[in-house]
Design a protein around this nucleic acid. Structure first.
Lengths: 207, 207
DNA sequence: TCTGAGTGAATGGAGATTCATTCACAAGGG
DNA sequence: CCCTTGTGAATGAATCTCCATTCACTCAGA
């Protein structure tokens, strides 16, 4: 439990979280100094320890809280989608859209979450699983509606979809002068997922 | 340039690299101590510095050399494939196959390469780009053969494919009791990529 | 006797965390 | 209304631990 902060409402706690996103995204967790984050948040080093147990706890709190906001946002957007295909498109667009609005946040989630999931003992990325779950739900709905292949393996497909999205985001983040706008990438990925790589009617069904 | 080693042939250097893979995969780069790697390689701490400039150089050398072997191996396998579709399948199977044979290596490449690409100044993952390039080549070939959609965006598709593969590998690595055998995952991914998510003839072409 | 690969104890620096102290404000008493 | 005192948020210099890297030394082989 990240200790509930002192102070009014916790705007200071929030300043620290935002500063952490900025510094972690710029230099990575291990290369970031607590004192740098403190400076960026305009807070004393010790203050950080009033709101977070330690550096790890700061990272984890950041993951869960920010990812929580992302999940809530995506859910809200998807709700207005008509059928599963449209929802899937919205999901993908939302993800790529987040890149532009909060690239720092996406960088941290992308690069550090992977590390942390593996090496921080007893940390389960709850909110991240929720994010994946949203994809499953869409796929299942698509099957029920009859627009998606009924024999689709949902748990493999959702990982594949997330992986594709994740890698495309990373490419965007890492290239100084991106080749494509995120929305272009989103559209292309949608098409790839729905139609596949093959020319219509080729390899697949017939033979 | 990782100093060319002393000693005969460099079997000691190789011991160090293998030990590094083991330790890095188990604890991550930043949580691994040079002395641990030395112990695992049955070598003195200082010996590591006869073969590598520093800890970073050890990681980078590991990336380039091991990734180089992977690239060479995949190229060899693909060479026997008939058309592009078959080559793509072989590529995917090779990747998933590597998971079983050298899971430690894949773990390091997966989890640390991403970090390093972003935070190690002046390191370009040459061999990794070659790996991606193999996918592009297959896709281009497929277009020429007329089995893949001619309007496919190769550079986006290759990233999407790699991302899907990468995420599925990660899932396999992180779960103690994997749900599927890598070969099952490979088959499912192939189908997903080639045919897409939709029921045959649905949303896509006709509409 | 000379060379240089190999060793591992000692060093130096970095940086996470602590804690004695300050300070702003609130409550109570005169 | 002003002063005294209590409370706890905030501070940041000092501490304490850890570990990459160094280098004086050993010793096997030529």
């Amino acid at each position: 439990m990240a200790r509930r902060g002192p102070n009014n409402g916790g705007e200071k706690r929030d300043r620290i979280l935002r500063a952490a996103v900025k510094i972690f995204s710029r230099k990575g967790f291990f290369n970031s100094k607590v004192s740098e984050i403190a400076r960026a948040a305009e807070v004393a080093d010790g203050t950080i320890y009033l709101y977070f147990r330690n550096k790890d706890d700061l990272l984890i709190s950041l993951f869960e809280e920010k990812m929580g906001e992302v999940v809530a946002d995506v859910r809200r957007r998807i709700a207005v989608g008509g059928n599963a295909l449209e929802k899937l498109r919205i999901f993908i667009e939302s993800h790529m859209d987040l890149l532009e609005r909060e690239s720092g946040l996406v960088e941290v989630l992308q690069v550090e979450l992977r590390q942390s999931t593996k090496f921080l003992k007893d940390y389960t990325p709850v909110k991240f699983f929720e994010y994946l779950e949203i994809i499953s739900d869409i796929l299942e709905e698509g099957k029920r509606e009859g627009v998606l292949r009924p024999d689709l393996n949902t748990s493999i497909a959702r990982r594949a979809i997330f992986g594709a999205l994740d890698e495309l985001s990373l490419t965007y983040i890492l290239s100084r002068k991106p080749k494509y706008h995120p929305s272009v990438t989103a559209a292309e990925l949608c098409r790839l997922l729905l139609e596949g790589l093959c020319v219509p009617g080729a390899s697949a069904g017939k033979g």
